[in-house]
Computed example of a mutant assay.
Amino acid sequence: MSVLIVIPARYASVRYPAKPLAELKGASGQSRSLIQRAWEAASAVKGVDRVVVATDDDRIKHAAEAFGADVVMTPESCANGTERCASAYDVLGSDAEIVVNLQGDAPLTPAWFVEDLIEAMRATPAADIATPVLRCDGRALNGFLADRKAGRVGGTTAVFDVNMRAMYFSKEVVPFTSDTYPNEARTPVFHHVGVYAYRPAALKAYPDWPVGPLEQLEGLEQLRFMEQGGTVRCVEVQPKGRQFWELNNPEDVPVIERMMQEMGIE
Results as ranks from 00 to 15, higher is better:
residue 3 V to I: 07
residue 3 V to Q: 02
residue 4 L to F: 07
residue 5 I to N: 12
residue 11 Y to S: 10
residue 17 P to M: 07
residue 17 P to I: 07
residue 20 P to S: 11
residue 30 Q to F: 03
residue 30 Q to A: 15
residue 34 L to G: 07
residue 35 I to Q: 00
residue 37 R to A: 04
residue 42 A to Y: 00
residue 43 S to R: 15
residue 48 V to P: 05
residue 54 A to V: 06
residue 55 T to G: 03
residue 56 D to N: 11
residue 57 D to K: 04
residue 58 D to T: 12
residue 64 A to P: 01
residue 65 E to A: 04
residue 65 E to T: 09
residue 71 V to P: 05
residue 73 M to I: 13
residue 77 S to T: 15
residue 84 R to I: 05
residue 86 A to P: 00
residue 87 S to D: 12
residue 88 A to K: 10
residue 98 I to A: 08
residue 98 I to C: 12
residue 106 A to T: 04
residue 108 L to C: 12
residue 112 W to K: 13
residue 115 E to Q: 15
residue 117 L to E: 09
residue 127 A to T: 13
residue 127 A to F: 02
residue 127 A to E: 09
residue 128 D to G: 14
residue 128 D to H: 03
residue 129 I to K: 09
residue 131 T to I: 06
residue 132 P to G: 05
residue 134 L to R: 11
residue 136 C to P: 03
residue 138 G to F: 03
residue 140 A to S: 15
residue 142 N to K: 10
residue 143 G to T: 09
residue 146 A to V: 04
residue 146 A to T: 14
residue 152 R to W: 00
residue 154 G to P: 08
residue 155 G to T: 14
residue 157 T to C: 02
residue 158 A to R: 01
residue 160 F to N: 13
residue 165 R to F: 07
residue 166 A to V: 13
residue 166 A to L: 15
residue 168 Y to H: 11
residue 169 F to E: 05
residue 170 S to N: 12
residue 174 V to T: 05
residue 175 P to L: 08
residue 176 F to Y: 15
residue 179 D to C: 08
residue 183 N to T: 01
residue 186 R to L: 08
residue 188 P to V: 09
residue 195 V to M: 10
residue 199 R to K: 15
residue 200 P to W: 08
residue 202 A to D: 04
residue 208 D to E: 15
residue 210 P to N: 02
residue 216 Q to H: 11
residue 217 L to K: 14
residue 218 E to P: 02
residue 220 L to R: 14
residue 224 R to K: 14
residue 228 Q to L: 08
residue 229 G to I: 04
residue 233 R to Y: 06
residue 236 E to G: 04
residue 237 V to T: 13
residue 238 Q to P: 00
residue 239 P to M: 11
residue 239 P to W: 00
residue 240 K to W: 04
residue 240 K to P: 02
residue 246 E to H: 09
residue 250 P to Y: 11
residue 251 E to N: 06
residue 252 D to Y: 01
residue 255 V to S: 01
residue 260 M to I: 03
